[in-house]
C-alpha cells in the first residue's frame, strides 16, 4: 500500500471578474481525487475544462473558494494547500513542489544555465554541482551547448520549455506539476521528455500532468482524471501499465 500524497476534495474555483460587472467564471467545481506517492496522474479534457486552473490551484497561484488539498509533506505532516499561509507554500515550493508551466517568463539578463540552477542553489547545493546537474539535463534534453550561456528571453518556445523542465526536475521535487510540458517540442524530443519523466517517476517522484496528446499521456499516466466544463467527467481509470 502506498500512502496518499495529495488528496483533492470538493475543490471549487470561481473567478469573480470585478471589471466585468462582477461576472463569475467557473474554473472548476467539486473536484475530488487522490494521488498516491510516486504515481503519475494525468489530467485530460477539452480546452477550457479547468485542467490548468487545477494545477495552478495545487501550486498556489490560484486561490480556491471551497474544498481541501491535503498534502503529505516529507516529514509525514499534512498541510491543506487550499488554506496554507504564504510562507508554508513558499517553503514547500523550495523543497518539495515544482511546477512546469508551458511558458517560461525568464528574467532578462540571466543565462539559461544560471536560471535553471537557481532553485538548486536556493536549496543549498553548491554552485558547481548545481551547474553540473543542469548540464547533464540540458545534454539529455539536447539543448544546444551554445545556448547554455545565452539568455532564454531570446529562445524559441521549445528551447524555453526544455530549460523549464531541467530547472524543475533538477531540484528533485517530491511532487512535480506539469502543464503541457511537451507542447512546443518535436516528436523526437517529446519521446526524450517522456523517457525522462518515466525515469523520475520510477525514482518515486509523484506527478500530475496535463498533456493534450493522449498517446503520450497514456504512456506515462497510472491514472487519468478527466474534466469536462470544470467538473469531473471520469476519474481513476487505469490507463497504463508500468514497466
Amino acid at each position: 500500500m502506498t500512502a496518499v500524497h495529495l488528496s483533492v476534495r470538493d475543490l471549487t474555483k470561481r473567478f469573480h471578474l470585478h471589471l466585468l460587472g462582477g461576472k463569475t467564471v467557473v474554473g472548476f467545481e467539486g473536484i475530488s481525487f487522490d494521488v498516491a506517492e510516486g504515481e503519475f496522474v494525468g489530467l485530460a479534457g477539452p480546452s477550457g475544462s479547468g485542467k490548468s486552473s487545477l494545477l495552478k490551484a495545487i501550486y498556489g497561484s490560484y486561490l480556491v473558494q471551497a474544498g481541501t488539498l491535503l498534502y503529505r509533506c516529507i516529514d509525514g505532516s499534512i498541510v491543506d494547500l487550499a488554506t496554507a499561509d504564504d510562507e508554508t507554500k513558499l517553503a514547500l515550493r523550495r523543497r518539495e513542489i515544482a511546477y512546469v508551466s508551458q511558458f517560461l517568463r525568464p528574467a532578462p539578463r540571466v543565462k539559461a544555465i544560471d536560471l535553471a540552477a537557481r532553485p538548486l542553489i536556493a536549496q543549498g547545493v553548491d554552485e558547481a554541482e548545481a551547474r553540473e546537474r543542469i548540464a547533464t539535463l540540458f545534454d539529455r534534453l539536447r539543448l544546444p551547448r551554445d545556448l547554455w550561456e545565452s539568455y532564454p528571453v531570446l529562445f524559441s518556445g521549445g528551447e524555453q520549455q526544455r530549460v523549464n523542465l531541467a530547472r524543475a526536475i533538477a531540484s528533485r521535487p517530491r511532487l512535480l506539476l506539469l502543464d503541457e510540458p511537451t507542447s512546443a517540442l518535436d516528436p523526437s524530443l517529446q519521446q526524450t521528455v517522456v523517457h525522462l519523466l518515466a525515469e523520475e517517476r520510477s525514482r518515486g517522484v509523484t506527478m500530475i500532468g496535463v498533456m493534450h496528446d493522449e498517446t503520450l499521456l497514456s504512456r506515462l499516466a497510472d491514472e487519468v482524471v478527466r474534466l469536462d466544463r470544470g467538473r469531473l467527467a471520469q476519474a481513476g481509470v487505469a490507463s497504463a501499465q508500468w514497466n
Partner: peptide, 22 residues
C-alpha cells in the same frame, strides 16, 4: 490584498488589483 506574487498577478482578488493587473 497580499499574497504570493504569482497569485496576485494570475488570480487577483480585489477589484483594484484586477484593474492594476489588467
Amino acid at each position: 490584498e497580499a499574497g504570493l506574487t504569482d497569485q496576485i498577478l494570475e488570480d487577483p482578488q480585489h477589484p483594484y488589483t484586477q484593474l492594476l493587473v489588467s
